[in-house]
Design a protein around this nucleic acid. Structure first.
Lengths: 230, 230
DNA sequence: CGGCACGTTGAAGGATCTCAAGCTGAGTGG
DNA sequence: CCACTCAGCTTGAGATCCTTCAACGTGCCG
């Protein structure tokens, strides 16, 4: 999913266009009435499954996990979001997952009442949001394939490659903000299995991890060999 | 997913509103220029993954599976669609899955060039399509949870309940248009496992199946007990 | 120092997959 | 009408991957 997740920065500036449209409507002297900045501490929820969606958000700094909880105590992490990603904009009557900060986060918050109104009045904007949602759907389908038809090692290999493709600035080094348990709940396996898969990949020389959660992919082909299809 | 899939009939008539809008634009004397009727034989593809999306469709009769194929030969069925459902409307640059007829189908086909134009000019319409897409995304997330955290029997039980909720007209009888292999590829397990799960449910008295693929849920609670959460 | 969250590793058990064989029903052709 | 074929379904047995339980290690923080 990560590669195809709901990322405004991978589409030609949909939210920036959104923001500028909004500004054109209600900007008075530099402040936009429907837009504000919020901060969230690590571990706190931005909103919860079932909440009424008063706002949607764009991540400025930090990272977020989208969580669905099951009554038996299991969690499913549907996606990880990084700076630049949009969040909570599917216009259902209630949020369909919980969004929790993995690290301390700063977000731009948009009031939905205004933005919904803007959508109604602006077809281009609505089309953009539709495209973003469709992109999310596409990613979800792709993730489904992986959850079903890949071994634990394949899934982790794919996950690391996907993370690498999002963090390509730092000379190949990837900072993983999430814990092993988070990864496990995202990839649908036990956290012990994640741990074993990491060990395996390190022993095979495919990755190195000098300090916890800071990794570098040494042998990308070894990882890609595990992935028969994209 | 089924319960929350992209179903126009479960939302207040989005496509009918769509069709009427389109009609208002281009209807001349009863025929709408961008809309036509097509039929597809069982097993044939309506469109394939990667195709350019010239059309989207609404199912009149028959049933369809959305398939993603993996290079190793495995398939993932992302969703089953029944009469009334929409198909192929996510406005990506290419179709992200293959749509195959399970039975002989009749479809209404809409030319995307016109409908896209209509979307650009009609924000309400764009919002409706966005809502449909969001609904699909929600269903995909829910399906993800099930694929990861449920046993084979749980998954089949959920699947049958979902099918029942869509076929509630026939006195509790459900006609399953898809094969065991299709179900297996939808639920992410081997077809032998599906078969065993069916046998188990029949022995437990939860369902009866006098003739193949025609089933009735006798003890819904027995099935629901397997589902801790919705 | 103690507590705690997170990560690693081992061992055992179990759910599911794979391989293999047989069954059933529909369609076809003689 | 019957034999044949073929696709789909069922069942069994063994193998395997993964989960679960358990113990231990490590780094952080009060």
């Amino acid at each position: 999913m990560l590669q195809t997740s709901i990322q405004s920065r991978h589409i030609q500036a949909p939210l920036s266009s959104f923001a500028s449209r909004g500004a054109a409507k209600s900007e008075t002297n530099g402040a936009r009435s429907f837009e504000s900045r919020v901060t969230v501490k690590a571990g706190e929820a931005i909103f919860s499954e079932g909440d009424a969606p008063f706002y949607f958000y764009k991540i400025i700094t930090g990272s977020i996990r989208l969580v669905k909880v099951v009554a038996d105590g299991h969690r499913q992490i549907c996606d990880f979001l990084l700076p630049g990603d949009l969040l909570g904009f599917s216009n259902a009557s209630e949020h369909e997952f919980t969004a929790e900060a993995i690290q301390d986060c700063t977000l731009t918050r948009y009031r939905r009442r205004e933005t919904d109104l803007a959508m109604k009045n602006d077809a281009d904007l609505a089309c953009e949001l539709q495209a973003l949602t469709a992109r999310g759907l596409s990613g979800a389908y792709a993730h489904m394939v992986r959850l079903c038809h890949r071994s634990a090692y394949d899934r982790l290999a794919w996950f690391l490659l996907a993370m690498a493709s999002r963090n390509d600035g730092d000379n190949g080094w990837i900072e993983l903000p999430m814990t092993r348990v988070d990864i496990a709940d995202y990839l649908g396996m036990a956290h012990e299995t994640v741990s074993r898969a990491f060990t395996q990949l390190k022993k095979a020389g495919a990755i190195i991890e000098p300090t916890l959660n800071r990794i570098k992919i040494v042998d990308a082909e070894a990882l890609e060999d595990k992935l028969i299809a994209a």
